[in-house]
Amino acid sequence: MSHPGEPHTSGLSGRLNWLRAGVLGANDGIVSTAGLVVGVAGATLSSGPIATAGAAGLVAGAVSMALGEYVSVSSQRDTERALLAKERTELAESPDQELDELTSIYQAKGLTRATARQVAEELTADDAFAAHADAELRIDPDALTNPWHAAGASALAFTIGSLLPLVAILLPPPNIRVAVTFVVVVLALAVTGAVSAKLGSAGLTRAVGRLVGGGALAMAVTFGVGQLVGATVG
């Protein structure tokens, strides 16, 4: 039985999902932009091309993330609306059958048939549509995800992540910029990896190791490619 002040499970889960998505978006920004600017730095010591490539990568990545999130959440929202519309129609056309269905749902959760029936009847009398949306569909009709919010959050997370390697590679002198960027990116990935592990209740060492190892490998490969291309073009 819930008590006043306790967080609503679905609301808490939703917030955790948003936070997890934000961390993943930031990770994408860190790794993709770091790989891009380090690769360009391997080909040239000039700050201009590095800044241009980094800024272009940041903007393109943020737009791509926002668009992808918008399409994904819009599709999910369309599906939820279709399910809710179907449920509303079924309630209007077959209320007795829907009451039996709601009773069965609560009975399957461990209530006796009589108690489940009483719960179903009381919930139906209060708000039949909300009761079925929650029990059958696990959807809150008043809290559907906003695709614009999702797109904005995704773009913001990617942008924040991208700014770290971009600033790290532009501020130091040319002879140490790659090393400084490497350290900054590794530390940032370690932090976001720890946050991801905490949110997902996963092993800290493994989660951090995957992110740090993957980011380090990406930078090493792109730096090597940058040096190879720079030497070939030069």
Results as ranks from 00 to 15, higher is better:
residue 2 S to K: 02
residue 2 S to M: 08
residue 3 H to A: 11
residue 4 P to E: 05
residue 5 G to I: 13
residue 6 E to M: 11
residue 8 H to P: 00
residue 9 T to D: 11
residue 11 G to A: 13
residue 13 S to C: 04
residue 16 L to D: 03
residue 19 L to Q: 11
residue 20 R to K: 10
residue 22 G to S: 14
residue 25 G to N: 04
residue 25 G to I: 09
residue 29 G to C: 09
residue 29 G to P: 05
residue 30 I to P: 03
residue 30 I to N: 02
residue 31 V to Q: 08
residue 32 S to Q: 08
residue 33 T to Y: 03
residue 36 L to D: 00
residue 36 L to M: 04
residue 41 A to G: 07
residue 42 G to F: 02
residue 45 L to T: 15
residue 47 S to I: 04
residue 48 G to T: 08
residue 49 P to M: 08
residue 50 I to C: 05
residue 50 I to P: 01
residue 54 G to A: 01
residue 54 G to C: 08
residue 55 A to P: 00
residue 60 A to C: 14
residue 61 G to W: 15
residue 63 V to P: 10
residue 70 Y to T: 11
residue 70 Y to K: 12
residue 72 S to T: 15
residue 74 S to F: 05
residue 74 S to G: 09
residue 80 E to H: 06
residue 81 R to G: 00
residue 84 L to F: 01
residue 85 A to K: 02
residue 87 E to G: 00
residue 87 E to H: 01
residue 87 E to M: 09
residue 88 R to A: 06
residue 89 T to M: 01
residue 90 E to D: 11
residue 93 E to T: 09
residue 95 P to L: 10
residue 95 P to V: 00
residue 98 E to L: 10
residue 100 D to A: 07
residue 105 I to T: 13
residue 109 K to D: 04
residue 116 A to R: 03
residue 118 Q to N: 06
residue 119 V to Q: 07
residue 123 L to T: 01
residue 126 D to S: 03
residue 126 D to N: 10
residue 127 D to T: 09
residue 129 F to L: 00
residue 131 A to W: 06
residue 133 A to I: 03
residue 134 D to A: 10
residue 135 A to N: 01
residue 135 A to P: 01
residue 136 E to P: 05
residue 136 E to M: 05
residue 138 R to T: 14
residue 139 I to Q: 12
residue 139 I to F: 07
residue 142 D to E: 15
residue 147 P to G: 14
residue 149 H to Q: 15
residue 153 A to L: 15
residue 157 A to Y: 03
residue 157 A to F: 09
residue 158 F to Q: 11
residue 162 S to Y: 08
residue 162 S to R: 04
residue 166 L to F: 09
residue 168 A to Y: 05
residue 173 P to S: 11
residue 173 P to K: 01
residue 174 P to N: 05
residue 175 N to Y: 08
residue 176 I to D: 12
residue 176 I to M: 12
residue 180 V to D: 07
residue 184 V to C: 13
residue 186 V to A: 15
residue 187 L to V: 15
residue 188 A to S: 14
residue 193 G to V: 13
residue 193 G to Y: 12
residue 196 S to A: 10
residue 201 S to K: 13
residue 206 R to S: 12
residue 207 A to Q: 12
residue 208 V to G: 04
residue 210 R to L: 08
residue 210 R to Q: 08
residue 212 V to A: 09
residue 215 G to W: 10
residue 216 A to I: 00
residue 219 M to H: 06
residue 219 M to G: 12
residue 224 G to T: 07
residue 225 V to Y: 06
residue 225 V to G: 02
residue 226 G to Q: 01
residue 229 V to H: 06
residue 229 V to A: 04
residue 229 V to E: 02
residue 229 V to C: 00
residue 230 G to V: 01
residue 231 A to N: 05
residue 231 A to V: 02
residue 232 T to F: 10
residue 233 V to F: 06
